[in-house]
Amino acid sequence: MKSETNADLPTSQLEDPGDGRSIESFLGKVVKEYRTNQGLTIADLAEQSGLSRSMVSKIENGQVSTSLDSIVSIARALGISISALFKNFEHREGNAQHVKAGKGMEVVRRGTTKGHTYHLLAYDQGPVKLFEPFLITMDDEAEVFPTFEHPGTEFIYMLQGKMEYRHGNRSYLLQPGDALTFRGSVAHGPERLIKLPIRFITVIMYGQSPELDT
Protein backbone atom coordinates (compact mmCIF):
# COMPACT_ATOMS: atom_id res chain seq x y z
CA MET A 1 0.00 0.00 0.00
CA LYS A 2 1.32 3.44 -0.86
CA SER A 3 2.07 5.71 2.06
CA GLU A 4 0.13 8.92 2.53
CA THR A 5 2.81 11.61 2.48
CA ASN A 6 3.17 14.58 4.79
CA ALA A 7 1.59 16.66 2.03
CA ASP A 8 -1.78 15.11 2.98
CA LEU A 9 -2.28 17.63 5.78
CA PRO A 10 -5.49 19.15 7.16
CA THR A 11 -6.93 21.45 4.55
CA SER A 12 -5.91 25.08 4.44
CA GLN A 13 -9.03 25.86 2.35
CA LEU A 14 -7.19 27.43 -0.56
CA GLU A 15 -9.91 29.46 -2.23
CA ASP A 16 -10.74 29.82 -5.89
CA PRO A 17 -11.13 33.56 -6.51
CA GLY A 18 -13.90 32.79 -9.02
CA ASP A 19 -16.69 31.81 -6.63
CA GLY A 20 -15.22 30.98 -3.24
CA ARG A 21 -15.04 27.18 -3.60
CA SER A 22 -12.04 25.47 -2.03
CA ILE A 23 -9.89 23.20 -4.16
CA GLU A 24 -10.31 20.47 -1.56
CA SER A 25 -14.11 20.53 -1.55
CA PHE A 26 -14.24 20.68 -5.34
CA LEU A 27 -11.86 17.73 -5.74
CA GLY A 28 -13.76 15.71 -3.17
CA LYS A 29 -17.06 16.28 -4.93
CA VAL A 30 -15.61 15.25 -8.30
CA VAL A 31 -13.90 12.14 -6.94
CA LYS A 32 -17.13 11.02 -5.27
CA GLU A 33 -19.10 11.63 -8.44
CA TYR A 34 -16.71 9.55 -10.58
CA ARG A 35 -16.61 6.81 -7.95
CA THR A 36 -20.38 6.49 -7.58
CA ASN A 37 -20.92 6.68 -11.34
CA GLN A 38 -18.64 3.66 -11.70
CA GLY A 39 -20.47 1.76 -8.97
CA LEU A 40 -17.44 1.72 -6.66
CA THR A 41 -17.49 1.88 -2.87
CA ILE A 42 -15.00 3.87 -0.83
CA ALA A 43 -13.38 0.53 0.03
CA ASP A 44 -13.08 -0.34 -3.68
CA LEU A 45 -11.43 2.98 -4.50
CA ALA A 46 -9.11 2.70 -1.50
CA GLU A 47 -7.97 -0.75 -2.57
CA GLN A 48 -7.44 0.21 -6.21
CA SER A 49 -5.63 3.45 -5.41
CA GLY A 50 -3.48 2.12 -2.57
CA LEU A 51 -4.86 4.67 -0.10
CA SER A 52 -6.62 3.96 3.15
CA ARG A 53 -10.39 4.08 3.42
CA SER A 54 -10.17 6.94 5.89
CA MET A 55 -8.00 8.95 3.49
CA VAL A 56 -10.39 8.41 0.57
CA SER A 57 -13.27 9.48 2.83
CA LYS A 58 -11.39 12.61 3.94
CA ILE A 59 -10.58 13.47 0.32
CA GLU A 60 -14.22 13.11 -0.75
CA ASN A 61 -15.33 15.30 2.16
CA GLY A 62 -12.75 18.01 1.40
CA GLN A 63 -11.03 17.52 4.75
CA VAL A 64 -7.41 17.27 3.53
CA SER A 65 -5.10 19.03 1.11
CA THR A 66 -4.27 16.03 -1.06
CA SER A 67 -0.76 15.32 -2.30
CA LEU A 68 -0.06 15.06 -6.01
CA ASP A 69 0.89 11.40 -5.53
CA SER A 70 -2.52 10.67 -3.99
CA ILE A 71 -4.33 12.53 -6.77
CA VAL A 72 -2.40 10.53 -9.40
CA SER A 73 -3.28 7.28 -7.62
CA ILE A 74 -6.99 8.16 -7.46
CA ALA A 75 -7.10 9.24 -11.10
CA ARG A 76 -5.47 5.97 -12.21
CA ALA A 77 -7.85 3.94 -10.06
CA LEU A 78 -10.81 5.73 -11.67
CA GLY A 79 -9.32 5.34 -15.17
CA ILE A 80 -9.23 9.07 -15.87
CA SER A 81 -6.59 11.76 -16.30
CA ILE A 82 -5.66 14.25 -13.61
CA SER A 83 -6.91 17.04 -15.86
CA ALA A 84 -10.34 15.39 -15.91
CA LEU A 85 -10.56 15.87 -12.14
CA PHE A 86 -10.04 19.62 -12.42
CA LYS A 87 -11.50 20.47 -15.83
CA ASN A 88 -14.51 22.33 -14.39
CA PHE A 89 -12.80 23.94 -11.40
CA GLU A 90 -12.85 27.43 -12.87
CA HIS A 91 -16.54 27.16 -13.76
CA ARG A 92 -18.91 28.75 -11.30
CA GLU A 93 -21.14 26.47 -9.29
CA GLY A 94 -24.40 25.84 -11.14
CA ASN A 95 -27.68 26.61 -9.43
CA ALA A 96 -30.23 26.27 -12.22
CA GLN A 97 -33.87 25.50 -11.51
CA HIS A 98 -34.92 22.45 -13.54
CA VAL A 99 -38.63 21.75 -14.03
CA LYS A 100 -39.29 18.46 -15.83
CA ALA A 101 -41.91 18.22 -18.58
CA GLY A 102 -45.40 18.17 -17.11
CA LYS A 103 -44.13 18.96 -13.62
CA GLY A 104 -44.74 22.72 -13.56
CA MET A 105 -47.00 23.87 -10.73
CA GLU A 106 -50.58 24.28 -11.94
CA VAL A 107 -52.03 27.60 -10.88
CA VAL A 108 -55.47 29.17 -11.23
CA ARG A 109 -55.85 32.66 -12.65
CA ARG A 110 -58.91 34.80 -12.15
CA GLY A 111 -61.81 33.73 -14.38
CA THR A 112 -60.10 30.67 -15.89
CA THR A 113 -61.76 27.66 -14.29
CA LYS A 114 -62.24 25.28 -17.22
CA GLY A 115 -60.48 24.36 -20.43
CA HIS A 116 -57.60 26.68 -19.57
CA THR A 117 -54.57 25.60 -17.54
CA TYR A 118 -51.53 27.53 -16.38
CA HIS A 119 -48.36 25.64 -15.51
CA LEU A 120 -45.75 27.76 -13.76
CA LEU A 121 -42.34 26.88 -15.26
CA ALA A 122 -40.10 28.55 -12.66
CA TYR A 123 -40.47 29.53 -9.05
CA ASP A 124 -38.95 32.88 -8.15
CA GLN A 125 -37.34 32.39 -4.73
CA GLY A 126 -36.01 35.91 -4.18
CA PRO A 127 -37.60 38.64 -2.02
CA VAL A 128 -38.75 40.50 -5.15
CA LYS A 129 -40.64 38.77 -7.95
CA LEU A 130 -38.75 39.41 -11.19
CA PHE A 131 -40.65 37.30 -13.70
CA GLU A 132 -43.22 34.52 -14.10
CA PRO A 133 -43.04 32.05 -17.03
CA PHE A 134 -46.14 29.95 -17.79
CA LEU A 135 -47.10 27.21 -20.22
CA ILE A 136 -50.76 27.87 -21.04
CA THR A 137 -53.11 25.32 -22.61
CA MET A 138 -56.63 26.05 -23.86
CA ASP A 139 -58.93 23.36 -25.23
CA ASP A 140 -62.51 24.59 -24.65
CA GLU A 141 -63.84 26.87 -27.37
CA ALA A 142 -66.85 27.78 -25.21
CA GLU A 143 -64.72 29.39 -22.51
CA VAL A 144 -65.26 33.11 -21.99
CA PHE A 145 -62.09 34.92 -20.98
CA PRO A 146 -61.79 37.92 -18.71
CA THR A 147 -59.30 40.65 -19.51
CA PHE A 148 -56.14 40.88 -17.47
CA GLU A 149 -54.11 43.81 -16.22
CA HIS A 150 -50.88 43.60 -14.24
CA PRO A 151 -47.57 45.45 -13.74
CA GLY A 152 -44.62 44.93 -16.06
CA THR A 153 -44.23 43.56 -19.57
CA GLU A 154 -45.67 40.33 -20.98
CA PHE A 155 -44.20 38.18 -23.75
CA ILE A 156 -46.18 35.47 -25.58
CA TYR A 157 -44.79 32.78 -27.88
CA MET A 158 -47.25 30.52 -29.71
CA LEU A 159 -46.54 26.78 -29.80
CA GLN A 160 -49.77 25.24 -31.12
CA GLY A 161 -53.19 26.25 -32.43
CA LYS A 162 -54.50 29.63 -33.56
CA MET A 163 -56.22 32.49 -31.72
CA GLU A 164 -56.97 36.17 -31.76
CA TYR A 165 -55.44 38.00 -28.82
CA ARG A 166 -56.55 41.46 -27.77
CA HIS A 167 -54.35 44.16 -26.27
CA GLY A 168 -56.13 47.44 -25.63
CA ASN A 169 -58.15 48.34 -28.73
CA ARG A 170 -56.17 46.10 -31.11
CA SER A 171 -56.50 42.40 -31.91
CA TYR A 172 -53.64 40.15 -33.12
CA LEU A 173 -53.82 36.80 -34.94
CA LEU A 174 -51.37 34.42 -33.27
CA GLN A 175 -50.18 31.16 -34.88
CA PRO A 176 -47.30 28.76 -34.06
CA GLY A 177 -44.00 30.64 -34.12
CA ASP A 178 -45.61 34.07 -33.57
CA ALA A 179 -44.55 36.27 -30.66
CA LEU A 180 -46.30 39.19 -29.01
CA THR A 181 -44.85 41.60 -26.43
CA PHE A 182 -46.89 44.25 -24.64
CA ARG A 183 -47.42 46.32 -21.50
CA GLY A 184 -49.30 44.34 -18.88
CA SER A 185 -51.03 47.46 -17.50
CA VAL A 186 -53.19 47.67 -20.66
CA ALA A 187 -56.20 45.31 -20.64
CA HIS A 188 -55.42 42.13 -22.60
CA GLY A 189 -56.43 38.51 -23.10
CA PRO A 190 -57.58 35.87 -25.61
CA GLU A 191 -60.48 37.12 -27.71
CA ARG A 192 -61.28 34.25 -30.09
CA LEU A 193 -60.06 30.67 -30.17
CA ILE A 194 -59.76 29.64 -33.82
CA LYS A 195 -57.90 26.30 -33.78
CA LEU A 196 -57.74 24.05 -30.73
CA PRO A 197 -55.89 22.93 -28.74
CA ILE A 198 -53.90 26.10 -28.16
CA ARG A 199 -50.59 26.09 -26.30
CA PHE A 200 -48.29 29.03 -25.74
CA ILE A 201 -45.54 30.24 -23.46
CA THR A 202 -46.10 33.53 -21.68
CA VAL A 203 -43.51 35.32 -19.56
CA ILE A 204 -44.47 38.24 -17.33
CA MET A 205 -41.47 40.45 -16.56
CA TYR A 206 -41.97 42.82 -13.66
CA GLY A 207 -40.33 46.10 -14.61
CA GLN A 208 -41.52 47.82 -17.74
CA SER A 209 -39.60 48.20 -20.99
CA PRO A 210 -39.05 51.90 -21.87
CA GLU A 211 -39.81 51.19 -25.52
CA LEU A 212 -43.23 49.82 -24.67
CA ASP A 213 -44.10 52.68 -22.32
CA THR A 214 -43.83 55.37 -24.97
Rank of each mutant, 00 (worst) to 15 (best):
F148D: 03
D178N: 11
H188F: 02
F131W: 12
R92A: 12
Q208P: 04
L68S: 01
I194K: 05
S3L: 11
L78D: 02
S65I: 07
G28C: 00
T66P: 02
V56E: 02
A84L: 08
E93W: 04
F182Q: 03
H188Y: 03
G115Y: 01
R109G: 05
L120E: 14
F148S: 10
A142I: 08
Y206Q: 09
L14K: 14
I194P: 00
L78M: 11
R166A: 13
A187E: 10
Q13W: 10
S209G: 12
R166P: 13
Q13A: 11
V203Y: 05
K114D: 07
F89G: 01
Q160S: 05
G104H: 00
F200Y: 13
D140Y: 05
V99D: 04
G207D: 14
M105H: 05
F145D: 08
T41H: 04
T5F: 02
G161C: 00
R35V: 13
D44W: 13
H91W: 12
R110W: 05
R21Q: 15
A43K: 02
L130C: 00
F89H: 09
D139I: 00
R199H: 01
L27N: 13
S52Y: 00
E24T: 14
G94K: 13
H119D: 07
E93A: 09
I74A: 10
K195M: 02
S52T: 07
F86C: 08
M163L: 09
K29E: 02
F134L: 03
A187Y: 09
S3F: 09
S25P: 04
M138W: 00
E106W: 03
L180S: 00
Y206A: 10
R21E: 08
Y206K: 13
R170D: 12
L85V: 08
F131P: 11
R183C: 09
E33V: 09
I80C: 04
Y118S: 05
I82M: 14
T112I: 03
N88S: 12
P197M: 01
A179G: 07
V107P: 01
R92D: 12
G102I: 08
V56F: 05
S49T: 10
Y206M: 06
N95G: 13
L40S: 06
S83E: 14
T5I: 00
V30S: 02
T11H: 05
R92V: 13
H119G: 09
P146Q: 11
P133N: 05
T5H: 10
